[in-house]
Computed example of a mutant assay.
Amino acid sequence: MNSKAKYHHGNLREALMEAAVQCIRENGAEKLSLRALARQIGVSQAAPYRHFEDKVALLSALASEGFAKLAEQMRDVMADYQSDPVGALQKGAQAYIRFACHHPETYRLMYSMPVEQFDDEEMETCHHEAFDLLEQTVNVGLASGAFKAHDKDAIVLASWSLVHGYAQLIIDGVIELDDIEIEKSFQSVGVIINEGIVA
């Protein structure tokens, strides 16, 4: 079903965002055009500007929604592990990777530009939510003795780099695994990182 068939009066903003993701998937963000999206959906060329001032505003809305959904999915799986920072870190990492795999276009867009280049009032808050969850978990792990006494910022950076890089390798097709294989593979990688590789 195409975007035009999905459009109904009253949900133009959502229809534009959905069509934009499809356009990004097929042609890349650089070729995104509000006027082209309007034609695709079947509305006047002026209609999109009631919701988005320009292309940057639309991209910002997509990225902001992506950051919010990522944080929400991480919170959902980490909530049951508040007293288990190791488990929380593992579950949060898995949720991060699943989000990237299921929404690769949005994920790439979220990290395609520095946050200050996006034009959205909520972007700054959304951008930090997932990172804050990671930082809070590391703080709990250090305070409880569940994590080795390394520098907190170094642990956060190492953990984020591992998960972000792993997700990027998958969505770029460098690692070809299905959902179950991805989870098993990342668990193995996590064990190696947790234990260290130096004999």
Results as ranks from 00 to 15, higher is better:
Asn2Val: 01
Ser3Glu: 14
Lys4Gly: 14
Ala5Met: 05
Ala5Trp: 00
Lys6Ala: 13
His8Ala: 13
Gly10Phe: 13
Asn11Cys: 09
Asn11Met: 11
Leu12Lys: 04
Arg13Cys: 05
Arg13Met: 06
Glu14Asp: 15
Leu16Ile: 09
Glu18Thr: 13
Ala20Phe: 07
Ala20Asp: 07
Cys23Met: 12
Ile24Gly: 03
Asn27Ser: 14
Gly28Gln: 08
Ala29Cys: 05
Glu30Lys: 14
Leu32Tyr: 10
Leu32Cys: 06
Leu34Val: 08
Leu34Met: 06
Arg35Gln: 13
Ala36Met: 10
Leu37Gly: 10
Leu37Thr: 09
Gln40Lys: 15
Val43Thr: 15
Ala46Gln: 13
Pro48Glu: 06
Pro48Leu: 07
Arg50Met: 11
Arg50Pro: 00
Phe52Asn: 02
Phe52Asp: 02
Asp54Tyr: 01
Lys55Ala: 05
Val56Pro: 00
Ala57Thr: 13
Ala61Trp: 04
Ala61Val: 02
Ala63Gln: 04
Ser64Trp: 03
Ser64Tyr: 07
Glu65Thr: 07
Glu65Trp: 05
Gly66Phe: 06
Gly66Leu: 04
Gly66Asn: 02
Phe67Glu: 00
Leu70His: 08
Ala71Arg: 05
Glu72His: 12
Glu72Leu: 11
Met74Asn: 01
Met74Ser: 03
Asp76Trp: 06
Asp76Arg: 15
Val77Asp: 04
Ala79Ser: 13
Asp80Tyr: 03
Leu89Trp: 09
Gln90Pro: 02
Gln94Asn: 02
Arg98Lys: 15
Ala100Ile: 13
Ala100Arg: 07
His102Leu: 11
His102Tyr: 05
His103Lys: 13
Thr106Phe: 00
Leu109Asp: 11
Leu109Arg: 00
Met110Ile: 06
Met110Glu: 04
Met110Val: 06
Tyr111Phe: 15
Ser112Val: 03
Pro114Cys: 08
Phe118Ser: 01
Asp119Met: 01
Asp120Phe: 08
Asp120Ser: 12
Glu122His: 11
Glu122Phe: 08
Glu122Ser: 13
Glu124Ile: 12
Thr125Lys: 09
Cys126Asn: 15
His127Asn: 15
Phe131Lys: 13
Glu135Ala: 15
Glu135Asp: 15
Gln136Met: 10
Thr137Ile: 06
Val140Gly: 03
Gly141Tyr: 11
Gly145Arg: 09
Phe147Gln: 02
Lys148Tyr: 01
His150Cys: 04
Asp151Ser: 07
Val156Phe: 04
Val156Tyr: 01
Ala158Asn: 11
Ser159Pro: 01
Trp160Asp: 11
Trp160Ile: 08
Leu162Gly: 02
Leu162His: 03
Leu162Glu: 00
Gly165Ser: 05
Tyr166Glu: 02
Tyr166Ala: 03
Leu169Phe: 02
Leu169Arg: 09
Leu169Ala: 10
Asp172Glu: 15
Val174Asp: 03
Val174Ile: 13
Ile175Thr: 02
Glu176Ile: 13
Leu177Pro: 01
Asp178Pro: 05
Asp179Tyr: 00
Ile180Trp: 04
Glu181Leu: 05
Glu181Cys: 04
Ile182Tyr: 03
Glu183Leu: 08
Lys184Trp: 00
Lys184His: 12
Gln187Ile: 09
Gln187Val: 07
Gln187Met: 07
Val189Glu: 03
Val191Ser: 09
Val191Asp: 11
Ile192Ala: 14
Ile193Arg: 12
Ile193Glu: 07
Asn194Gln: 14
Gly196Arg: 01
Ile197Tyr: 11
Val198Asp: 06
Ala199Gln: 11
